[in-house]
Structure formats: C-alpha cells, structure tokens
C-alpha cells in the first residue's frame, strides 16, 4: 500500500551547520563580521585597503580572503595596515565555513571590532554559502555594466549593502548610475547603495559611516544587559 509522507523540511547542508557554529562564535566574541562578494576585479581588495588606511586608528580590524591562487591580495591588505590571512581555494569558486573556521584560528576574535571575509571573485556560488557573517556586502563596479543586479539576483538579493565602485570611470564606460539603482530597487532591495571610488576616495566617508553603524548595532546586541 503506497503512502505519502509529507515532510516540508528545509534542506540543511553541511555548510549550513558550519555557518551556524561560526555565527555563534562571532556573536560570543561580539565583533562585526562582513562578507564581501563581487565579480573578479570589482574592487573588494581596494575597498579593504582604503578601509584599513582610514579606519585603522579607530577600529581593530582583520581580514581573511579567498582566491584560487597567490597571496597577492593579502599582501596588499597587510601593506595597507590590516592583518589578513589568505585562503587559496585551488579550484574552489567560493569560500565555505570550514575554510573560514581554519583561517580565523590565527586571530583572537574578542580583540577585534570587525572581521572582513573577502570572498572569491564570483557572483554566483558565494551567495549560496553562508559563512556565519552578520552583514553581506556586494561590490559592483561601473565597467561591469549597470545591469549586474538583475543578472545576478541571488547574490544581490542577499546583500545588506551594495557598493558601487569606480565611479571615477562613469563617463569613460557610459555607465548609468540611475539605471543601476533602478535594477537594485527592482530586486526589491531596500538597502544602502553606496557610490564611491577607491581610486579617488570619493564617497568613501559614507562606507566608513555604514561600517561604524553596523559595528555599533552588533556591539549593542552582544553587550550584556546591565545588572
């Protein structure tokens, strides 16, 4: 006799379990963890360099970064004044919870205000792999074209903040900021859209303010209530 067993159960992957454990560790340590995602070359590393140069006196920050090969990005971030641990993924197209858990072993999380996770440059797979972060930032850039949000809806939908880099190249590339922001809103995203240029420094103030606000929000949530 055939019988239908109704389950309606959300599929929990091994990475979901690892991410939940990481999220617990991050909450206990009380730091803000930001996962940066973008296509290759959008400017994740440049954004971290600029952040290190401008915020290192105020906040204790560190990073882990994923790339298929080389430690070039980590060296750039370290040179800018932020500790950074490179993860080489070989052929892996995204970072997973296990890689992040191993990479952060070198840090005392309780001594940090912000940990950045610079994901592998890819707007497809990283979106499906939670790393226990508090905030996701998608970085896009003007040479990529203004329709990126609607082409990669899953990544953009998961963003808590969208950064549009290389605003100094708007004229050269024929990029339409209005069209880009229209595509972001079409995705039903009510998140900050920060237009900036890591090269000229234009708009970086709003990014640093956003980081400070998120840091404060996570710290207030983590702080024990007064006796």
């Amino acid at each position: 006799m055939a019988e239908r067993i109704r389950l309606e159960k959300k599929i929990v992957t091994e990475n979901d379990r690892l991410a939940a454990a990481l999220a617990e560790r991050f909450d206990e340590a009380g730091l803000l963890v930001v996962n940066l995602m973008s296509s290759p070359g959008a400017g994740k590393t440049s954004l971290l360099e600029q952040t290190a140069r401008r915020l290192a006196d105020d906040l204790r920050m560190a990073a882990v970064g994923g790339d298929l090969a080389t430690d070039r990005d980590a060296r750039r971030i370290i040179d800018a004044g932020m500790p950074c641990r490179q993860i080489n993924t070989g052929r892996g197209c995204h970072l997973n919870g296990r890689q992040v858990a191993e990479a952060i072993e070198v840090y005392d999380l309780a001594d940090l205000d912000i940990l950045f996770i610079e994901n592998v440059g890819n707007l497809v797979c990283p979106a499906s792999f939670d790393l226990g972060e508090h905030r996701r930032v998608v970085v896009s850039s003007t040479p990529e074209g203004d329709d990126k949000p609607v082409k990669y809806p899953v990544a953009f939908r998961s963003a808590d903040c969208v950064v549009l880099n290389k605003m100094d190249l708007v004229e050269a590339t024929g990029f339409s900021p209005a069209s880009f922001s229209g595509f972001v809103r079409d995705l039903g995203l009510d998140v900050p859209l920060l237009e900036l240029s890591c090269k000229t420094g234009q708009g970086l103030g709003a990014w640093l303010d956003w980081l400070r606000t998120q840091r404060e929000a996570v710290r207030c949530r983590a702080a024990p209530s007064p006796e």
Binding site: A2, R4, I5, L7, E8, K10, I11
Partner: peptide, 11 residues
Amino acid sequence: TQLRLESLEVE
C-alpha cells in the same frame, strides 16, 4: 527562496 524536501512516497 527555499530548498526543501517536500514528501516521500513509500509502500
């Protein structure tokens, strides 16, 4: 937005 196991059929 979800991936879920909806049902099984057994006999």
